[in-house]
Amino acid sequence: MDTLRLIFSTLCRSVNPMYFSLYSGPHKVEEACEMYCRAANMFKMAKNWNAAGNAFCQAARIHMQLQNKHDSATSFIDAGNAFKKSDPNEAIKCLNAAVDIYTDMGRFTIAAKHHITIAEIYESELVDIEKAIAHYEQAADYYKGEESNSSANKCLLKVGAYAAQLEQYAKAIEIYEQVGSSTMDNPLLKYSAKEYFFKASLCHFIVDELNAKLAVEKYEEMFPAFSDSRECKLLKKLLDAHEEQNCEAFTEAIKEFDSISRLDQWQTTMLLRIKKTIQGDEGDLK
């Protein structure tokens, strides 16, 4: 390890940008860039992630000085991947720098991919859901612009799920209806449409029982296969139980459904919110 540190120190001193700026030939700057990359990879081998990230950032800046935009973006991505292991905020800065370069180059699909990576850091490391939503939305916009509708829908579904959790139900409903409508005529994806209409209905239900009834009717008319789905039948049972303020019937309908088709955490959360609107109910779903 001491030997590596000595090599690192020597490399970093020898690639001082001020030193290379004294030379008129671009080959010296290219040499500096190469040495920063070597240093970064050696730092990675030693699992010194901050130092690796900083070295990759220096390489990225030199690449930009040489007008090597693609190489600059790649180095910023390498820096971001290193910083992800030690400093999420620095990782985001580097990834955003790469995204700016890719969008300037018109590489929107790859920019979208890295917006997703940023969103995931906000989700898992920084727990800033609002910012995660913003990056998923930006990724979806870029994917749509490139006609990558399936990838766009995956991003939108993340936005819809988080919007509902944050009680932004109108936004969630709009997304689930949009994705459901775009998939119901696709032979390979139409099976998923019932799930999206089910989720939209749950969001309607939390806001207002009548809204939910009207929404279910609309989805049945739009997508006749929804009428025969277990999700639609559950919704109708829940609407009846809710109208009668029958907490027991509400719970039994959910238990019956869950015994065959397991409810996920998001669905369980939404159903619990609906159940709590039944007068006097403070209990669990099961």
Rank of each mutant, 00 (worst) to 15 (best):
Tyr176Pro: 06
Gln265Arg: 08
Arg107Lys: 11
Thr117Ser: 10
Phe43His: 02
Leu11Ile: 15
Ala119Lys: 08
Asp71Glu: 15
Lys69Gln: 07
Ala39Asn: 10
Leu234Ile: 07
Met105Thr: 01
Gln58Lys: 14
Gln168Phe: 07
Ala172His: 07
Ala79Gln: 09
Glu220Arg: 14
Glu221Ser: 10
Gly160Trp: 01
Asp208Trp: 06
Leu271Cys: 02
Lys190Gly: 06
Met45Ile: 08
Lys218His: 05
Ala163Asp: 00
Pro224Lys: 12
Ala163His: 04
Ile92His: 05
Gln178Met: 14
Arg13Trp: 03
Ala46His: 08
Val99Ala: 04
Gln165Gly: 07
Cys57Phe: 04
His114Asn: 10
Cys33Ala: 14
Gln265His: 05
Gly145Arg: 13
Asp87Ala: 15
Ala152Tyr: 02
Thr269Ser: 13
Tyr122Phe: 15
Asp258Trp: 04
Glu221Thr: 12
Met42Ala: 01
Thr3Phe: 13
Tyr23Thr: 04
Ala97Trp: 04
Met1Asp: 05
Gln67Pro: 01
Tyr102Ser: 01
Ile62Cys: 14
Ala82Pro: 09
Lys218Thr: 10
Gly180Tyr: 03
Lys154Glu: 06
Lys236His: 13
Asn186Asp: 15
Ile254Ala: 01
Met35Arg: 12
Glu34Leu: 08
Tyr19Trp: 08
Trp49Met: 03
Phe257Cys: 10
Lys236Ala: 00
Ser229Ala: 12
Asp281Gly: 01
Tyr102Lys: 08
Ile116Tyr: 00
Leu22Thr: 12
Thr10Met: 11
Ser75Asp: 09
Met270Gln: 15
Lys275Phe: 02
Lys144Ala: 00
Ala225Ser: 09
Ala52Val: 03
Glu220Gln: 15
Phe76Lys: 06
Trp49Asp: 05
His204Glu: 09
Glu195Lys: 13
Asn96Phe: 07
Ser150Gln: 11
Ile173Gln: 05
Phe8Glu: 03
Glu34Pro: 00
Lys194Ala: 12
Tyr36Trp: 15
Ala164Asp: 00
Phe8Lys: 02
Ala111Ser: 10
Ala212Arg: 02
Ile62Phe: 09
Met184Val: 03
Gly283Phe: 02
Ser151Gln: 12
His135Val: 02
Ser151Asn: 11
Glu125Lys: 15
Lys131Glu: 12
Glu252Ile: 12
Val179Gln: 04
Ser229His: 05
Cys155His: 02
Arg230Pro: 03
Thr3Ile: 14
Ile274Asn: 04
Val216Lys: 03
Val207Glu: 10
Asp141Ala: 10
Ser9Arg: 11
His27Leu: 08
Ala132Ser: 15
Glu217Asp: 15
Leu202Trp: 02
Ile173Ser: 02
Ser261Lys: 06
Gln165Ala: 11
Gly53Cys: 02
His115Ser: 06
Gly180Leu: 08
Glu195Tyr: 08
Asp281Leu: 01
Glu167His: 12
Asn89Asp: 08
Ala98Leu: 07
Ala98Ile: 08
Glu30Phe: 04
Val29Ile: 14
Phe250Pro: 03
Ala119Phe: 11
Ala249Gly: 07
Gln245His: 01
Asn149Phe: 13
Asp128Tyr: 10
Glu209Asp: 05
His63Ala: 12
Asp240Gly: 06
Phe76Ala: 05
Asn54Leu: 08
Ser182Tyr: 04
